[in-house]
């Protein structure tokens, strides 16, 4: 029976390990510095991770569908630059839908290549990382983009406003998380994403249009990127061309930390949110302890490798890999 108990605990750790780790982590930091769990601090952290988080929500769909998206950072730079540029040219009311249309167009292009043409997603999105970066630079002429009248625009409401004391970015992140969580876990589309990522061939043999499902996961992903670009642009009202650089790998780190398998077919929106929050709170906790921002890189490294290691170890029932 000891076996059974161990198995059950192992199973629990494998399923909810990330949540348990998160809670333990919060407790430790809270004991070290009570300011850590002050409401304004927590809100501050969530707000600062909202952009990363929104993108991670979309990438979760792509990863569960069995693919990767390395182009999201570069794509966010694009949408930020585009919406800022169009803001002064055609006004915010038109700039926002125009930016969404263009970003979704990029997502559709990637989705077409990966879904319908069945090209390897790692290379396609690697190529698109570069290509979209070029597109952004061409659009902006390589210059930073700034809104002329920073005081007089209502555009800042998305990044800087608040409703009932809650910052708008948090509300958008939360709303999107709930909607996408329902989409993934409760709708036929979500089920199909899991099936396609779990076993694409079996999905096709069950009459699921694999190509269309993959295509749609990239639409979801690029839609989230557009929202993130909007938040970024509205928060700073000006931007460099490289604002999203490197974000793709941080996002992937959050999704993996949440427990999604890179092979596809597993993971949830909720776990991704936890992954994002862990990354955010590590950064914040270390800052409160007086450590420089780059220490978080090292800590994140340790945590990612540890988290995935324990996950893998729990599945195979031993800590060290049996590879000779």
């Amino acid at each position: 029976m000891a076996d059974m108990t161990r198995e059950r605990i192992g199973g629990l750790l494998a399923r909810q390990g990330i949540l348990i780790a998160f809670v333990a982590f919060m407790i430790v930091f809270a004991l070290a510095n009570p300011r850590f769990i002050a409401v304004d601090n927590i809100l501050g952290v969530v707000r600062s991770t909202a952009i990363l988080g929104v993108i991670a929500l979309g990438v979760t769909f792509v990863v569960i569908g069995g693919n990767l998206d390395l182009s999201v950072g570069s794509m966010m730079s694009f949408s930020t630059i585009v919406v800022l540029d169009l803001h002064d040219k055609i006004g915010p009311a038109l700039a926002i839908p125009a930016m969404f249309a263009l970003t979704l167009g990029l997502g559709a292009f990637i989705g077409f290549l990966v879904g319908y043409l069945k090209l390897n997603s790692l290379i396609v999105t690697l190529g698109m990382l570069s290509a979209i970066h070029g597109l952004t630079l061409t659009w902006s002429g390589g210059k930073n983009m700034d809104i002329a009248d920073k005081e007089g625009t209502w555009f800042s409401v998305f990044g800087q406003g608040s409703v009932l004391g809650l910052p708008v970015p948090i509300l958008i992140f939360a709303l999107l998380a709930v909607v996408l969580s329902l989409l993934l876990s409760r709708t036929p589309f979500g089920r199909k994403v899991y099936a396609v990522g779990g076993n694409g061939t079996a999905a096709v043999f069950s009459g699921i249009p694999r190509a269309r499902v993959v295509f749609l996961t990239y639409l979801v992903s690029s839609g989230c990127v557009a929202v993130a670009g909007l938040l970024q642009a509205s928060r700073s009202l000006g931007s460099q061309n490289t604002v999203g650089q490197g974000l793709e790998l941080e996002v992937l780190a959050a999704v993996i930390l949440g427990g999604a398998s890179l092979l596809g077919g597993s993971g949830t929106v909720f776990k991704t949110v936890i992954g994002v929050l862990i990354l955010g709170f590590i950064q914040n906790g270390l800052l409160l302890m007086g450590l420089a921002f780059y220490v978080q890189y090292v800590v994140t490294w340790v945590i990612i490798v540890l988290a995935v290691w324990l996950d893998v170890a729990a599945k195979r029932g031993r800590l060290l890999s049996p590879i000779a």
Binding site: L262, Y297, V298, W301, V305, V308, W309, L320, P322
Partner: peptide, 16 residues
Amino acid sequence: KTGVDAFIVTLGSMLG
């Protein structure tokens, strides 16, 4: 030793 995929390990060490 961990059996974790190289993509994930080196993604982590890229940050680290």
